[in-house]
Design a protein around this nucleic acid. Sequence first.
DNA 1: TTTTTTTGCGAAAACGTTTTCGAGCCGATG
DNA 2: CATCGGCTCGAAAACGTTTTCGCAAAAAAA
Lengths: 335, 335
Amino acid sequence: MAGTDLKKLARELNLAVSTVSRALRDSHEISAATKARVKALADKYGFRPNPHASSLRQAKSRTIAVVVPEIRNNFFSQAINGIELVAQEKGYHVLIYLTHENSKQEREVVQLLQNGRADGLLISVTEAESYPHLEACREAELPIVFFDRVVDEIDAPRVITDEKLLAYQTCRRLLESGCERIAFLTMAGNLSISRHRQDGYLQALKEKGKEHLSIIVECSAADGDSREQLKKILSGPQRPDAVFAAVEKLAVDTYEVCAGIGLNIPQDLCVAGFSNLTVASLFNPPMTTVVQPAYEIGKEAAGILFRLIEGKKLLPGEQKRVLPSHLEWRRSTAR
Amino acid sequence: MAGTDLKKLARELNLAVSTVSRALRDSHEISAATKARVKALADKYGFRPNPHASSLRQAKSRTIAVVVPEIRNNFFSQAINGIELVAQEKGYHVLIYLTHENSKQEREVVQLLQNGRADGLLISVTEAESYPHLEACREAELPIVFFDRVVDEIDAPRVITDEKLLAYQTCRRLLESGCERIAFLTMAGNLSISRHRQDGYLQALKEKGKEHLSIIVECSAADGDSREQLKKILSGPQRPDAVFAAVEKLAVDTYEVCAGIGLNIPQDLCVAGFSNLTVASLFNPPMTTVVQPAYEIGKEAAGILFRLIEGKKLLPGEQKRVLPSHLEWRRSTAR
DNA sequence: TTTTTTTGCGAAAACGTTTTCGAGCCGATG
DNA sequence: CATCGGCTCGAAAACGTTTTCGCAAAAAAA
């Protein structure tokens, strides 16, 4: 029933408010008998303590915030799935904020978390010049854990994947299977993930002595734009014989553009990319993907955040956790 | 800077706490001059009012809760996308809870929202015998809006789609293009969406006088189980020549099972289903889907919830809002 | 001029918890 | 017998806001 508070219970039981509070929280200084009486009545009324009063008094919210660029992306929804699982186990609540790749929005949202609304922050950042809002969190002693898209300059634990390695391995295999001109498709060039993946790409080229053949395509974030860019590149005279997409969306875009302009995958163009699409194997042709352990990343990041919140020492490997991705080699890259 | 509160500002400005509070909220009873002074100092310190204190005093949290069965499903992540957009516009925060199709978890989670943690609830329910927790919300005067998966017995606004109609149209078209034995694949049989979609399916059969040929397959929620069930049905002697999946997962499962046992889509089996997979057109063969306007559903539901929260009258159509889905007819159903 | 209204602000109560402090009581200890 | 320490519990402060109430001074009305 709504409208039950400690005062009401106390009055009805002829007890002090403090006693009722303590009884409900199983304090050792309350006798078993009173505890039973109190709990019985609380149950009867379905009493739930007001969370704002508790949070105010205890200076903690039992809430964590998750800030991500978008949620329609499979990677993020899987990660959130993992985060929510851990949070629910811990009895924490999860606030969610989408920044839509807009750094201004990210700043504003994170500012709002400053004064106790959340006890901790899990964030996968958006590209920006600088991250003053995250510095502010550190000053406000709001624990942060990065996942996937991290910012190097800020000293906070991070959970990432071995993306450079996987990018390298994928591109090497493309080269070894006969691809000569691999285009690297990327979106926000200055994002940690873009850089790392590009590094892997370049390393593979370099190793084969084909660094001079690198083709780096920085695509626009706007939806239609990237497809236009791809169309131009893939219908040109010097078109690549393979693309490696740094993000899922660009791999999918490539498929669509190919269908549009009549290019055959993989005969005319090999396609591979980072993607957590569980249905990639149903594509025509099945798409070669680097899949990141998104769910585990979420769980891991949340776990570390809780250790921070609880003031525990971090384990040795937790300041920078690198989880293994894996390559699903499929027909879209079969030469 | 952390640790700034009204008291500190007041002291530094030689003002009363109440004056500072009023100045920051642009109260008319504060002179422009003092407002400026106050705001300047607040800005300097980056002051953010403690949300718990505000919420406690004002008895509102500026937070809404979203409860959904899962988030990996494209439908829900798109809906959440819409919800978050509206919430952010309104300056509200969004709590998210996943029930993983577990009604006990749903009950517990909703109970936690009772005492002011959220000002409103958007929910897509999980199958259950009854919904006492939702009744409780009504008594606690916590506004609810259902979206997609609704419960008829509870009097709250709902945002759904014309799913029965679309199920009917899809099945009719399957019949007209020559399918004789269409299997209807469903998961939780007593869910509103399952019932409506099944009704549409049956209506189409009835209209063609083939009601006796109905095949209703209630699949297990467990991941591997549903594929096993499908495998059995699709490799049997009397196998269907088409399946219509009530939910995305079962359509995808069908593709996978077909690949496993060597059935060709659509020659051996037509496949269609409700799905918000944006990549369905890239499947082999491209998959026929009924796509629901998930994003709009989210926006619409959130909009209605806010009208409830703000105590406004609902517009005529808002108690039950039906948005149009659409059918994407593709090669998976080409006879 | 006097009276009323308006303007600008301060003091304190209120929101519903948790926590600090202390008090009474009882049994044990010296 | 005086003291001490544990066991229960109550009174009140505290958390940081918002809001109610009141009050003085200035402005407007009479």
